[in-house]
């Protein structure tokens, strides 16, 4: 078996002062191989976003190791592109096309090649004709499309997504989920996705890691089956796991 693309080894993250330490994540280990879609799911306070920020290099683990291709992660970098939940993650002073081309330009790609690639991505995320628009002219869903296109522009080793669809309306969210899967089939990237929605986790993940809160610990790791009925069963299992009372829907 190949060595994993990403490996977390007994990672703990503490916040707060020496007097009142807060443990956000405790002793979490998992690994992720190429082309996988791992979804971290759990209630708020389970440290899933903290874990993602640690993989992104924005936070240092208090204990344990985060290894990307066997090398410890020290700082943020374009090999782990992050899509944030906030709509203000686009650079307001750059057009849609320039935002998407920016990672390529920073990587030393020529202007022509970068804009050709940006144009192709604009088309793929369904924003044809909006290349010259500035971010403030776009709706929330459109901004998210641009952010995803930008994250894929210079193909990262790992795509990190921190509840990217949580602030969208239900219809847009649904459509974005399907389009993310379509993009995955086209680009086959490796995805680490954080959500608190069980439905989203089952829909998007090839594997689901359930975290328990206070502090965040691995509660369960579940493979997502292809079969529709088996997925529905998994969803019901997850509901039982995460909600103490049976959900009366």
């Amino acid at each position: 078996m190949l060595s994993p693309l990403l490996a977390l080894k007994e990672v703990s993250v503490h916040f707060g002062t020496a007097n009142r330490p807060v443990t956000a994540v405790e002793n979490v280990s998992f690994s992720l191989s190429e082309g996988e879609r791992l979804v971290l799911v759990g209630p708020s306070g389970c440290g899933k976003s903290t874990l993602l920020a640690t993989v992104g290099g924005f936070l240092r683990p208090s204990a344990g190791h985060v290894l990307l291709d066997g090398v410890p992660v020290r700082r943020p970098g374009p090999d782990r592109m992050m899509v944030f939940q906030e709509f203000d993650q686009l650079l307001p002073w750059k057009s849609v096309a320039a935002n998407i081309a920016y990672p390529l330009r920073l990587a030393g790609v020529t202007r022509e090649v970068a804009s050709a690639r940006a144009e192709a991505l604009i088309h793929q995320v369904g924003l044809t004709g909006f290349g010259d628009a500035f971010p403030h002219m776009l709706s929330g869903g459109m901004k998210m499309r641009v952010a995803i296109a930008r994250a894929l522009a210079a193909p990262p080793r790992l795509l990190l997504m921190d509840e990217p669809f949580a602030a969208l309306d239900a219809l847009t969210r649904r459509r974005m989920q399907e389009e993310l899967l379509r993009l995955w089939h086209e680009h086959v990237f490796t995805l680490l996705f954080v959500t608190h929605s069980i439905e989203e986790a089952v829909l998007l993940g090839s594997r689901i890691l359930v975290l328990s809160p206070h502090p965040g610990r691995v509660q369960a790791v579940l493979e997502v089956p292809e079969d529709r009925a088996a997925r529905a069963a998994l969803q019901a299992d997850l509901h039982r796991l995460l909600l103490p009372e049976p959900a009366d829907v």
């Binding site: 782990r80 203000d88 993650q89 002073w93």
Partner: peptide, 27 residues
């Protein structure tokens, strides 16, 4: 400056002077 914007700059591999000039100043 929104912290997200700063993180986006860091995510793109910008630090120090380059981060200041390309992200912080226009923001």
């Amino acid at each position: 400056i929104p912290p997200t914007l700063r993180r986006v700059g860091e995510n793109l591999g910008l630090r120090g002077w380059r981060l200041t000039l390309r992200i912080l100043l226009p923001a």
